[in-house]
Amino acid sequence: MIPLQVIVSIIETGCFFGLLAAAMFVVRESSGFFNFAVGGYAVFAGLASAYFTSVRGLPAAAGIAIGVVGAVALALLTEVLVVRPMWKPGANEELPMVIALVATLFALEQISGVLFGRAALPGPQLVGDGAVRLGSATVTAQAALEVGLTALAFGLLLLFVYRTRMGRGLRAIGENTPAAIVLGLPVRAVRIASFTLAGALAGLAGSVFAARSGIIFDSAMDYTLFAFLALVIGGTASVWGPLAGGLILATIQSAAIFYFGAAALHYATLAAAVLFFAFRPQGIFMKRVRV
């Protein structure tokens, strides 16, 4: 049986993956493609917040705010500089743009390294070292904060997607973009909104979770990969899909490490991906398709 302490850590990691996957999810919903640059936003936000708190001595909250705002700005820049000039709706010509997004991911990773240094930095500590004992496990204030902020973010995302006009537009456009254009839906405005959200979610993930084990610039590709896996595992039928996928991915990885040692991480992730892609490509939450 996995100790309670490991479960606490699984929930933390799962929340992190879930936020990243949610960032990819909103763009997927609004525009129908995967924004592989989200790992870059998260790394930038994490390093920026860490740099301004640990090197420049700003308060943690200010550091996190800078990180999130920076991530949003990068997401918007991606939309303006990469997506807008290259996006062709409906055509099977999406590949060059998505390749450009992958290149953007590498560019962001390197920009973060150039700006904030290539060494690992400790993340901003928003809360003290307080901890609560929960049976055999210790829940740190940091962990509680992470889970709380994730819950808050998903709550707001839920309200946005299901309760606002723009959120409903988001889902309608992702379903069938050419039709949405014909119907005169505000495709561009919705896409900009979704990129803003993606930046905010990835920025939050990067800067808040950086405090767990520090952050280093070359994690961007892994972040993107795990976000993608979590999204595929969870599916895109519901806002909860990314969170569920993140938690499942974290469970698989942590269980593999717990039972088989650190090297098993990669083998287990590969096995999980092959199994999920082969048997349940639509994710845990299936979209109901009318026949």
């Binding site: 995967f34 592989f36 998505v98 990969l225 993608f228 896996l229 595929v232 090297a263 991480l265 990669h266 083998y267 992730t269 590969l270 991906a273 092959v274 892609f277 490509p281």
Partner: peptide
Amino acid sequence: FYLAAVTLLFSEAFQA
């Protein structure tokens, strides 16, 4: 990109 993701994971596992 599903294929890319799995083969990338294979790469990482192979490296490990």
